[in-house]
Nucleic acid binder design. Structure first.
Lengths: 138, 138
DNA sequence: ATTGTATATAGTAACGATTTCTATTATCAT
DNA sequence: ATGATAATAGAAATCGTTACTATATACAAT
């Protein structure tokens, strides 16, 4: 497992900005959120450029694309394999360092005829902010 | 946990057909696939009707909507909580009866400030059909 | 069985996220 | 500095899904 594939990717100002912004946050922004961030520095950047670069960066293994349900893909500069939790109220996504000492892939191999590659553990719940809001409203 | 919420839903011919078709397959069809199936019996059914009914049926707890990554939502008449595996080649989705004896929610509660509600375990791999195809091509 | 009313329908238009297209511009090895 | 290749901005296209609207249907009360 190498972090980046051996394809050398050209580093453009746009790509660097996108990567910098993504690295600087611990949220898991969607493409449009990154577009808004980068636009502060590069007002003329195109939304298409953001999408294309997020694709290229995740294909290269430099960032990861996370698909936690909902309609939009999210991105994470932390490529370690960690679980995520999505707030059912506001849709925000947080990291989760759960260490469950189980060989998930092995368990699955015994239960189906697929060639099992990987697993993903995803949680849903209510984030601290929405918990507070709910308390106020009640 | 009740199977259906207490809202009584009106049973139309269209809704019944959709439910019947979904119950008769062990794949996890997307809305358009169900549309094609039902169209055999009801050529004039609208795709919008299929979408609306799948929404209503899953809201009522009669079926479940599954979000296994990819761009389309899938549906399952089996409402038991089981894991799914998605083929990275063809996108098909299979059931997986893995029994991992771990309290996932509890593990997560210790790792974040969210009010943890539920978890979802999803696998990716290569389905038997695509395994064969790959073997042939190599 | 007939009626009334709330809900569902077909068909179509609108929507939002993402991808594609194309002419121009930038990167980087030479 | 130059040239080949890849990336860009901007716009249009695509695709899954949802919303809209006039008509039709289900079902409870009569």
């Amino acid at each position: 497992m190498n972090l980046a594939t051996n394809t050398k990717i050209r580093m453009t100002r746009q790509r660097q900005q996108i990567l910098d912004h993504l690295s600087s946050v611990k949220t898991h922004p969607i493409a449009d959120e990154l577009y808004q961030m980068v636009r502060q520095q590069m007002p003329r950047i195109s939304l298409g450029t953001v999408y294309r670069n997020l694709e290229i960066l995740s294909d290269s293994g430099i960032i990861q694309k996370i698909d936690v349900g909902g309609t939009q893909k999210r991105f994470d500069a932390d490529i370690s394999n960690h679980a995520h939790i999505r707030c059912v109220k506001c849709g925000c996504v947080g990291d989760l360092d759960v260490h469950i000492d189980v060989d998930f892939e092995d368990a699955a191999r015994k239960a189906c005829d697929f060639e099992v590659l990987r697993h993903r553990l995803e949680y849903s719940g209510i984030c601290p902010d929405c918990k507070d809001k709910k308390a106020v409203l009640m």
